[in-house]
Amino acid sequence: MVLVIPTCRDLGIGIVFSPLGRGFFSLGLGITDKFSDNDFRMILPKFQPENLEHNKTLYKRVNEMAMRKGCTPSQLALAWVHHQGNDIFPIPGTIKIENLNQNIGGLSVNLTPEEMVELESMAEVVKGDRYPPKFPTWKTVDTPPLSSWNAE
């Protein structure tokens, strides 16, 4: 995300970002215990045992900061994205109204520059890619060259 932000800003493009980690910040340390047998998240690299233990230590640090701030870890994550600038928009993917209402509380969380640096340092060391290798994303799918597009 570090290189994307300046480029998008140079081009006047807004950014949407989902910081809740597929439920990691709302479900906490026992998240994988709550997965059903067919839960899509079971294949995600960040939830694999070799990455999960490391990521749980980051969660504990986020949770400690959230407790100091009087908010939930999800609200803190949303506040971190909200504080990135007026051109970056957090998108908390939820289907439950109670989670939406709680997430709105992230708008009231004020972060100091020092807290922003601390959260950024944690975000930089999360282990496990967003998706498994060869999963169809912008990294794995060939986009036809612009010259081949029919803009009519």
Rank of each mutant, 00 (worst) to 15 (best):
V2P: 01
V2W: 05
L3I: 09
V4K: 10
V4H: 07
I5N: 02
I5V: 14
T7M: 14
C8H: 05
C8T: 09
R9M: 05
R9D: 02
R9T: 01
D10V: 12
L11R: 15
I13H: 10
I15C: 02
F17E: 12
G23S: 06
G23H: 07
F25M: 03
S26E: 03
L27V: 00
G28K: 06
G30N: 15
G30L: 06
G30W: 14
I31N: 00
T32H: 02
T32E: 03
D33K: 15
D33C: 01
F35I: 13
S36I: 03
S36R: 14
S36F: 13
D37Y: 03
D37R: 09
N38F: 11
D39I: 03
F40Y: 10
R41H: 06
R41F: 12
M42W: 12
I43V: 15
K46M: 09
F47Q: 07
F47K: 08
F47E: 02
Q48C: 10
Q48T: 04
P49R: 14
E50V: 08
E50H: 15
N51Q: 12
L52E: 04
H54R: 15
N55H: 11
K56P: 00
K56A: 01
T57D: 10
T57W: 11
L58P: 02
L58N: 05
Y59D: 02
Y59C: 05
V62D: 00
N63M: 06
N63F: 07
N63S: 15
N63P: 01
N63W: 11
R68H: 10
R68K: 13
G70F: 04
C71W: 11
C71D: 02
T72A: 07
T72Y: 05
P73K: 08
S74M: 01
Q75A: 04
Q75N: 09
L76F: 08
L76S: 02
L78F: 08
L78K: 03
V81A: 04
V81W: 07
H82L: 15
G85E: 04
D87V: 05
I88H: 06
I88D: 00
F89P: 00
P90E: 08
P90Q: 11
I91H: 10
P92H: 07
T94M: 10
T94K: 08
T94I: 02
I95R: 15
I95E: 15
K96A: 00
N99T: 06
N99S: 05
L100D: 02
L100I: 04
Q102V: 01
I104T: 00
G105T: 03
G105E: 01
S108I: 08
V109I: 07
N110A: 11
T112I: 06
P113D: 12
E115M: 08
V117W: 02
E118C: 02
E118S: 04
L119C: 03
L119Q: 01
S121W: 10
A123C: 14
V125L: 07
V126F: 12
K127P: 00
K127C: 03
G128Y: 07
G128C: 07
D129L: 08
D129M: 08
D129Y: 13
Y131S: 00
K134N: 14
K134Q: 14
P136Y: 10
P136H: 01
K139T: 12
T143N: 11
P144D: 13
P145M: 10
S148Y: 14
W149S: 05
N150R: 13
A151F: 14
